[in-house]
Structures are given as C-alpha cells and as structure tokens.
C-alpha cells in the first residue's frame, strides 16, 4: 500500500509540474462553447501576443458548470451563459475584472451592462447575445406562426426540431400558461406537465449543437432554436423566417469571465480586450450571426447582416434566465419521464 501511495504522490507531482510549466509557457486555457469563436480570431491573438490558446469546448452551460466545479484544468477564460455566470458569481468562483485594462470595453452598448446576472458589472464582459425563437420554413408552412401555441399543434407532428435543453423547453410551456420563465416551482412544473406531454409527441428532433441541420435537410419544417442558427438559415435561404414568440422569448447573453483559478490573468484581460476590438468582433459576427452587443462592431457590418431578422429582431417581449438551484433535477426528471412515455 505504501508503494501505491508513493506512486500516486509521484503522479500528482508530475501533473502539478506539467501544469506549472504550461502556465509559465505563456499559455491561455480557454473554455468556450463549441462553434462560437472563429479559429481565425484565436490565431490572430496568438500571432499578436505570442500567447498560445488551448481551446476546450462545451455544449451546454450546465456542462461548463459541471466541469468548472469538478476542478481539473485551471481555465483562464470561460464563456458562461448569463444564468451560469450568476451562479458562479454567487459562489465566488469568478475573479473581478479590471475594466481599466480593457480599452475597448466602451464599445459595449449600455443596454448590455449591469444586467441581472452581474448587477454591479464587476465580473463579466458580454460576448454575444441572442434569443431563442421560432424558425419557419415558409415554403412548407403556410399558416401564420406567432408563438409556441402555433408551433406545437397536431398539424405539425413530426415536423419540429427544438434545442435539446430541458430548461428551455419547460420555460416555453410555462410562458404559454402565462407563467414567468424563471418561476420554476414544483407546482408550476406540475401545471406545465400536460402541455409538455402533448408537445413531446410532436417533436421530431432534439438538437442543441446544430438544429439548423434538420431544417436544411428538409427533415422538419419548424424549429425553436438559437437565433444564431436561425440567422444562418436565413442567410442560406430567406424562406426560413425567424419569429419571436408572442408569449415571450428567452434572451441569453453569453459572457466572458475569468475564474478564480486562472493563473494567467494578464493574458486573460489581453484576450478579452482583443475580442472587444470592433474589427475582431465583426469577424465573430460574420461567422456566428448572433446579436452583437459591441456597438462599434455593429457599425462595421453590412446592411444585409444588420437586416437579418434573426440577428437583430424587432423589439419583442424578452426575458433572461436566472440561476436556478435544485429544481434543475426536477426539470430533468419531468422531461425524461415525458420522453420515455412517448
């Protein structure tokens, strides 16, 4: 047993050593959404500063949170969605940002500052924002679609794709019932259950990574998807129209933040400031046409890009997600149960 202890200690030591070497080596550990930061942007940063970027990806805010909490890699920059950032701030897992080091922070439009997740604007910088809305293939669907109630009807059975995110789906059901999206109580879940039970029968595909695929392939005609995906579809073919649901739409803000464990905060600030440059931010918008919170970058976009109704939708009823606690497990159980009952 003693030998085993020694070996384990040795392994741990080696791991620590490698970690230190990496940090000293001018490296930046970036933990971000898959398909959200163009490689071109990362390469540009490395070319300019000589800092190597290790880009690790996640597919959901919860996955990011899980991995953050599990420890492991000391990330220097993370890209949490608003409600996850809120949880991280509450748990004191984020390092305060020195905004004085961010000469380009002034480019952020005022409506994206001091939002509910970071009311004092101390820990986060907005990266991209967007909405979750309805995409309609207007060649196949002739009747007008205004909200969730028009999407989830028996006529559209087996013709719908939605993001594979249980909280999203549950929030839509709540909103059709006139309940606020963040009001996630067991009683409200119980009310949403019969609505969701009907919806689950109609949905053909659940896909968070690339919900546009099923629409493009003609497998489905309607979708409730991220606005960036909708914008790409519109760019591909204007028959894919984007609609903000009348019941209310989820507005999400994806942020950049520096975790407490970061060992390279200087480079982290450099990276954030680099992202905030209008010409860099514009490249991100071109590749991933979400709503850019960077006012200066928006000015560099083409009229067509600014006119994309999915990227810059007309003002509607918007609301952000807030951090929820243990109710996430009740949401998961509810959806699992309903999908299973199908």
């Amino acid at each position: 047993m003693k030998t085993l202890h020694r070996i384990l200690a040795l392994v741990a030591l080696l791991g620590a050593l490698v970690g230190t070497l990496r940090a000293a080596n001018k490296e930046l550990n970036l933990f971000a959404w898959s398909e959200y930061i163009p490689q071109e942007v990362i390469d540009g940063f490395t070319k300019e500063t000589g800092v190597k970027v290790n880009y690790e990806t996640f597919a959901s805010g919860e996955e990011m949170l899980s991995k953050m909490l599990a420890g492991g890699t000391a990330y220097d920059i993370i890209q949490p969605p608003d409600y996850v950032a809120e949880a991280l701030i509450r748990a004191s897992l984020l390092a305060p940002i020195d905004y004085a080091k961010l000469s380009n922070f002034k480019n952020i439009l005022p409506e994206f500052l001091k939002m509910p997740h970071d009311p004092t604007q101390e820990y986060t910088v907005p990266y991209m924002t967007g909405t979750v809305g309805i995409v309609v293939n207007t060649e196949k669907v002739k009747e007008p679609i205004h909200g969730f109630k028009d999407v989830f009807t028996p006529a559209h059975a087996n013709r719908i794709v939605v993001v594979n995110d249980n909280r999203e789906i549950v929030s839509w059901a709540l909103q059709t019932l006139g309940i606020e999206a963040n009001d996630l109580t067991p009683e409200n879940l119980e009310k949403a259950k019969p609505v969701l039970a009907e919806w689950v029968k109609l949905i053909k595909v659940y896909d968070s990574d690339s919900p546009k695929t099923a629409l493009l392939n003609g497998e489905v005609d309607l979708g409730v998807v991220w606005s960036g995906e909708a914008a790409l579809l519109y760019k591909e073919n204007p028959k894919f129209q984007y609609v903000l649901p009348v019941e209310g739409a989820h507005q999400f803000v994806d942020l950049l933040a520096i975790p407490q464990q970061s060992k390279n905060r200087l480079a982290a600030h450099q990276f954030i400031d680099y992202i905030l440059r209008p010409e860099v931010s514009k490249k991100i918008s071109e590749a991933f046409p979400y709503t850019n919170p960077n006012g200066e970058a928006r000015k560099l976009l083409t009229d067509a890009e600014r006119g994309n109704p999915a990227s810059y939708p007309p003002v509607g009823k918007l609301g952000t997600f807030r951090h929820i606690g243990k109710i996430s497990q009740a949401i998961d159980a509810l959806m699992t149960d309903l999908k299973n009952a199908r």
Partner: peptide, 20 residues
C-alpha cells in the same frame, strides 16, 4: 434526434444538464 431517452443519455444528462 434524442427523442427517446436511452440509459446513456440519462446518465450523461445528470452530469451535463441536471447537474445531479
């Protein structure tokens, strides 16, 4: 299309979605 849950999906969800 993630329509019918399999045990693998359920376990994965506990770690990456339900945070349980």
């Amino acid at each position: 299309g993630a329509r019918v849950p399999m045990i693998g999906n359920v376990i994965q969800n506990q770690f990456f979605q339900a945070r349980n």
